[in-house]
Amino acid sequence: MKIDDSLGRLEEITKRLEQDDIPLEEALVLFEEGVSLATKVNSALDEARLRVKTVLEQTKGSFAIDDFDLQ
């Protein structure tokens, strides 16, 4: 998931909901979409575990990637 995209879309929804002439039905649809996006970002944060890797270039354009031992 692209966090940037989700947050960008949430900003758009906020702007649209700020408009007084928005039809009630559209407002409800957007509200639902906003909640769904916010929930997704939130659960992505919950499930995230920092990953750390070491990269060494072996030959030009070819890389050895290893997990970095944090201990």
Binding site: A44, R49, L50, V52, K53, T54
Partner: peptide, 8 residues
């Protein structure tokens, strides 16, 4: 920011 992937 645990979403991050760090490459050393």
């Amino acid at each position: 920011w645990p979403l991050a992937q760090i490459y050393l």
